[in-house]
Design a protein around this nucleic acid. Sequence first.
DNA 1: GTGCTAATTGTTTGCGTAAACATGCTAGCG
DNA 2: CGCTAGCATGTTTACGCAAACAATTAGCAC
Lengths: 330, 330
Amino acid sequence: MADVAALAGVSAQTVSRVANGLTNVDPSTKDRVVAAMNEIGYRPNSAARALKTGRFKSIGVIMFTLSTFGNMRTLDAIATAAAQAGYSITLIPIALPTQVELLGAFSRLGEHAVDGAIVIVESHILDRSDVSLPTGLPVVIVDSDAGDTYSVVDTDQAAGARDATRHLLELGHRTVWHVSGPEGSFSASRRRDSWEATLVAAGAEVPEVLIGDWTANSGYLHGLELAKRDDVTAVFAANDQMALGLMRAFHENDIAVPDHISVVGFDDMQEASSFWPPLTTVHQDFSAVGRLCLEKLLDQIDGSGTSRGVAVIPTTLIERQSTAAPASAI
Amino acid sequence: MADVAALAGVSAQTVSRVANGLTNVDPSTKDRVVAAMNEIGYRPNSAARALKTGRFKSIGVIMFTLSTFGNMRTLDAIATAAAQAGYSITLIPIALPTQVELLGAFSRLGEHAVDGAIVIVESHILDRSDVSLPTGLPVVIVDSDAGDTYSVVDTDQAAGARDATRHLLELGHRTVWHVSGPEGSFSASRRRDSWEATLVAAGAEVPEVLIGDWTANSGYLHGLELAKRDDVTAVFAANDQMALGLMRAFHENDIAVPDHISVVGFDDMQEASSFWPPLTTVHQDFSAVGRLCLEKLLDQIDGSGTSRGVAVIPTTLIERQSTAAPASAI
DNA sequence: GTGCTAATTGTTTGCGTAAACATGCTAGCG
DNA sequence: CGCTAGCATGTTTACGCAAACAATTAGCAC
């Protein structure tokens, strides 16, 4: 910076003013400074700037795992929105969704330079009152029940599961089986509860819940069991991967989808429309989630936003060809 | 830091020594300082540290898109390895794989605090001699031909495509069709070239290449065309999504896979084993790519590594149930 | 011309840390 | 007993920048 100032024949402070785009600089001076900057190849040093201002223009994203479709899409949207706002993303992966790991991640975030954080952990641990995040740092949490303590962006899991279940009931199925996500997952329990409530509200029998782990293989294993029964006509899987596994099990046992069993998924991953048969599923708007997270976080950072409350992103049922009226109703 | 020093009754410099784990500190003094740190909740300020040392303990990852399976897995591996090494990841998404965007990303990286960068752009632009990255920053590039200019980590695309093609030929297919990735993609052209070379080496006829865009839908559209022909018995798709689309088209036209047409994919995405039928595909070790990228980059950063050369990660053909001998050979 | 305001630019200062240098203290040796 | 080597600790300084304040100039009304 000093070199630029010397070359342009001004003080370092004036260079700083130009670099930060302040208005009260004479145009001709500004031109000289800009020319000098280009000649020297000056880049402001973010460490020094951060040290002086206390702002880092960077936000941390704490994620349990990158390997799920939804988390990835959310991250993509956050990163894109952040780039537009001039913020960079610092990614902190955690190996396990435990409190210890999460606090460790926050600690690392404290050492790295971050103005705020987005937590995508897909677990109940944040909802428990004995777990609390370090205060003072603006935080937005994705898909959690902790809206009374933190700012939360949540997909309307309940409505999605209700729509999926109701869709199957309206086709004439007497009841709907459910392959759930793992215990401890917030999204999984939301979908499971809503499925059950919808069945009860419709006066339908509630079958035993099948607990999966989000993978296609767990869906496949449950599908093999379901294939042995003759009273199953409709299954709602808590995500598309497990729905895919279910359908594989049904194919292997020559059970036609949707003619003998209807299947509905959740997520609407890109490939869902190319499954065989194309999967009826609940679309989640991960991009909207990511964008809204960033928006709420930036509002907190500049002081204009609240630090608690829940924003809900709606879901949409996408009807494709994996659902039909039950054979008995034909 | 000053507060900690006062509480522990030592100088700030001693606190710094403890924080950095230097050895020449009396154990009892060290204990006092550590106790004081915990009491106050001291966290070293990374901006100040970076300002003083010139090291940021952070590396930048420039990606074209997060939404492909492979990039996401690679990023996951990089992030995990980086966390273990005490580095954080700064994610810079670029909207389009053009030189302008890439240079813009590098410029942003220059402003943000980064010790090195990993570029995952999936495009030929880095191979052209007229494109050069700003020098001075350690860089590792994934899947590129620029090994004579930069340090590159590359998956052995050629071997994978050769194995896939040869596998089909060895089953007795007279030739193998190919649904390629888009023009301009480095991986796509590698796989396409190797497929063609393998056919030529085997004396097989080389059918017209079908150009897709990595999406399942593009595979589906090409599949509809292939379904109209009666001379197609084997197809090699350049990724699993397009293979999925192909199989959907074949299912819709009552063409049995693998009885009438064999299909091979590329990537071995998690769901590939649950496709119907389970997909024979080429496994890529994205985790190894990510880990190796980080390793090479850190070597460059601490000065012990070279800044050019190519490291190749092998691929493995995974035989599942989408391939079989052609009907004519039965 | 005097007194004022507004616009532009310069000067001083300190953010939190670690390197370089300085000090003080203990132990060991002849 | 005095001297030095070696270790623990303290003091000074500078990293690059921007906030706060100071200074200079121009423009304007009286």
